[in-house]
Structure formats: structure tokens, C-alpha cells
Simulated scan of single mutants.
Amino acid sequence: MAQERTVAFKGNPITLIGPELKAGDKAPDFTLNKNLLEEVSLNDYAGKIKLISVVPSLDTGVCDAQTRRFNEEASKLGENVVILTVSADLPFAQARWCGAAGIDKVITLSDYKSNSFGEAYGVLIKEFRLDMRAVFVLDANDTITYVQVLEEMTEHPNYEGAIAAVQALL
């Protein structure tokens, strides 16, 4: 049986499924949809420093702000860094949202098919089949160097901490 732990949504308990990853762990592989037909895995970003921003849905205020913030930061981090935003939104919804929001540096990836990313990274919300707000920073060899899984879904992540973790790898 998969590991479970409790966090909160508006003060009410929700259950996360999967391991509690920590700095120093090897990042689990994943299969996510870039669009309806194209799937990508961790290997598609081999050799790059990766900031993985996980959001429940781009169509909510905090997720919108989180994705916009990391999109702004992306241009300052250079060619060796890729910022991936993962949500369970359908790829169509992600593309529509990015177009409307002018998001052009962050790559949105969808966990809608099997929630395998959420389960592998320990952020799958059992009650909603969405991924919990989190940030993971992986070095060029796919070792996790920074993890923040929020205890309350409606709060913002530590943007400065995540960016500093990326900068420390440059």
C-alpha cells in the first residue's frame, strides 16, 4: 500500500499519497503529457537543472500567481535551467491558460492521465485526484536538492527559497 500523510485544504485535512521525498533523494522518473499526444519523462530534461512547480489547478488564484512568478524568474536563470509546472489540468486547459496569461518560459505538463507524477513525488491528493502545491529543485544529475510540499494548499510556496536553491546549482 502507498504511503499516506495528512496536510490541509482551507484548514480541513486532506491525504497525500506517495513517498515523502527529501533533499538528497534521487528524483523519481515520471511520464507527463506535454499535450494530448506527446508524453515526456524526466530524461527529456537530462543535464538541466530543473525547478518543478506543482500546482493543483492553473485556474485558481495562488496557482496562477505561482506560475506567473516562476515564469518571470525563468529568464534570469539561464539556459541550463528548465522550469516545469505540473498540474492535473487537461493539456488543452494548460495551453489556453498559458496563452491568456502570456506564459512563455515555463513548460506546463499534465498529470491528468494516471496521476503517476503525483504518486511518485508524494503529492497526489487522494480526495481530489489533484497534485498538492509543492516545489522540487533537481540538479543536472536528477538529485533532489530542495523540496517544499505545502502543509496548507491555499498558501504560496517560498519563492525565494526555491530560486536560491536553483542559483546555488549554477
Rank of each mutant, 00 (worst) to 15 (best):
E20F: 00
T145H: 10
L58E: 13
E73V: 00
E4R: 13
E39S: 12
L16D: 01
A134K: 03
L16V: 02
G18A: 03
A162F: 06
R69I: 06
M132N: 14
K48P: 10
R96K: 14
V7Q: 07
P157A: 08
L21S: 04
E127V: 04
L51G: 12
T108A: 06
K50P: 04
T6I: 14
S53R: 09
E4G: 00
K50I: 15
K126V: 00
E4H: 04
R133S: 11
E127Y: 03
V86H: 07
F92Q: 09
Q94V: 01
Y45W: 08
S53M: 07
P19G: 02
A168Q: 13
V149I: 14
A134F: 05
A74H: 07
L150M: 08
K34L: 15
P28K: 08
K126T: 02
R129G: 01
N12F: 02
E79N: 11
E160Y: 03
G161L: 15
N33L: 14
A46H: 12
M132P: 02
E160M: 08
V166R: 09
D64T: 13
D139L: 14
F117M: 03
R133A: 08
A120E: 06
T108P: 02
S87H: 01
E79F: 00
A162H: 10
D131I: 13
L32F: 08
L77D: 11
N141F: 01
A88L: 00
V137K: 10
A65P: 01
V166N: 10
C98I: 00
N33Q: 13
V55Y: 10
L124H: 11
E20C: 00
P157D: 08
I14M: 04
S57L: 09
A74Q: 11
W97K: 04
A120W: 01
D44E: 14
K26F: 06
F9N: 09
R96D: 13
T143E: 15
R68C: 08
Q66A: 07
L109T: 04
L169T: 13
F128K: 13
L138H: 12
T31F: 01
Q3L: 13
K126H: 04
Q94R: 04
A164P: 06
D29F: 02
Y146A: 08
